[in-house]
Design a protein around this nucleic acid. Structure first.
Lengths: 198, 198
DNA sequence: TCCAAATCTAGAACGTGTTTCAATAATCAT
DNA sequence: ATGATTATTGAAACACGTTCTAGATTTGGA
C-alpha cells in the first residue's frame, strides 16, 4: 500500500505533489462533499495534470480512502497521547466514539465524501481499508482496556470491537446518506455498547 | 414510495412496463452485477425508451433498491410460512441468516449489484431502504421469538436485531466488495449473535 | 556532462448515468 | 367521438470518471 505511514517514496518534488493532491482532495471534500471531489478539480487545485493525478492514485476511491487514512492516522495519534476518561469500559468507549462522531459531524461534507468512498471501496483498495480499520480498532480497544496499558486484549474484546465498529459505521452511513439524524449515530452506538459491554 | 407492496398504481400497460423493467434489472444484475445494470441496457431489455425508464425510476439506485425490496419481500414471505427450526434464539437466528446468506452467495453478481445500490442510497431512497429494513427486521425478530408467535418483542429485542442487522450488512458488504471470504460473512454474524444473545 | 529512461503536461476521447426535446401515441373527461 | 392532457418514444446532448497520446521536462547513471 502506498500508505501515509511508510516513509513516502520518491523525490522531494514527488512527495510535494502527493501532499498537494491530498490537500486539494480534503479541501474540495470539505467544501462540497463527494461530488465536489472531481478529478479535474483535484488536478487543477493541486497543480498537476490529470494524467499525473491518475499516476499517483488509480481512482477517485483510492484517492479518497487514502485521504481518509491520513485523517484517521492523525486522530489516532492524538487520542494515543491522551488518557481516556471514564470509569467503565462503556463510558470510555462512548467518550472516544462520541468525540470522534462529533468531530466528524462538524465537517459534514468532508465526512460524507470520505465515508462514501469507504463504502464504495472494492478489493483493490483493501490495503487502505485495512489501514483505516486498524486505526479505529486501536482506538476502541484502548478505550475498553482503559488505564491498564499492558492488558492483552482477549478474543472477546476483539470480537466486541468489531461489532461496535460495524454499528458505528452503519450508523454513520445512515447519517451521511441523510437517512438518519446526527444524534442517532451516537445513540445507536450507545445502545450497542450497552448490549455488548455488560 | 412507489413500493412493490402497494397495489401498484396506473394502467395495466404501466404495471406491465414496471414489471418488465424490474425483471430486466434483476436479469442484468444476475448476469454481470452492478456494472452490467446499465440504464440503456435495462431500457432495451424491458422494451421501453430510456426516458420512460427514468420516469418510472429516477435513478439507477432507485431502480436497484426497489428490485432489492421485491427480492426481500419474497424472501420474507417464504420465511413467514415456515417454522424456524432451532431450540435457542441463537440457533434460530443463525438458521435464518445463514440460509439467507447462502442463498445470496449463490447469486454473487446479483447480490453485489443490490448491495452496492443499498450502500449508495441517499435520502431520496429512504422509503425503499426503510422497506428493506422492515423485512429484514421482521425475519430476525421472528427467529428470536421462535415458536412463541404472540410474544411482543421487547425494547432489547429490537436493539439486538438492529445490531445484528448492522453486522450482517457490514459483513456482506465486505464480501461483496471482495475484501473478505464468503464464509466470513456467516462467521462474523455468528460471533455477534453469540455476544448478543447470551 | 550527456544520454536514456522515467515522469509530467495538455488535451482529446470514450463510457455510462442523467437530462432534454420534439414528435407521436395513449388516455381521459366531456 | 373529440379535444386536451399525459405518457412514451427516439435521439441528441451533457457531466464526470477514466484512458490515451504526443510532446516536453526531469531524473539518474555512465
Amino acid at each position: 500500500m502506498t500508505s501515509v505511514t511508510e516513509a513516502t517514496p520518491g523525490s522531494n518534488a514527488q512527495r510535494e505533489r502527493r501532499r498537494r493532491i491530498l490537500d486539494a482532495t480534503i479541501a474540495l471534500a470539505d467544501s462540497g462533499g463527494f461530488d465536489a471531489v472531481q478529478m479535474r478539480a483535484v488536478a487543477d487545485n493541486a497543480d498537476v495534470a490529470l494524467g499525473t493525478l491518475y499516476r499517483y492514485f488509480p481512482s477517485k476511491i483510492h484517492l479518497l480512502v487514502t485521504a481518509l487514512g491520513r485523517q484517521f492516522e492523525r486522530a489516532e495519534e492524538q487520542s494515543r497521547n491522551r488518557q481516556v476518561p471514564g470509569d467503565t469500559a462503556h463510558e470510555r468507549v462512548m467518550y472516544i466514539l462520541g468525540h470522534t462522531t462529533t468531530a466528524l459531524q462538524k465537517q459534514p461534507e468532508l465526512t460524507e465524501a470520505l465515508t462514501r468512498a469507504f463504502m464504495f471501496a472494492d478489493a483493490s483498495v483493501a490495503d487502505e481499508i485495512h489501514f483505516v480499520g486498524m486505526k479505529l480498532t486501536a482506538m476502541i480497544t484502548r478505550a475498553i482496556d482503559g488505564t491498564d496499558e499492558n492488558r492483552e486484549p482477549t478474543e472477546e474484546d476483539t470480537a466486541i470491537v468489531r461489532v461496535i465498529s460495524d454499528v458505528w459505521f452503519t450508523a454513520l452511513m445512515g447519517w451521511v446518506t441523510g437517512r438518519t439524524q446526527a444524534e442517532d449515530v451516537t445513540k445507536s452506538v450507545d445502545v450497542a455498547v450497552r448490549l455488548l459491554l455488560r
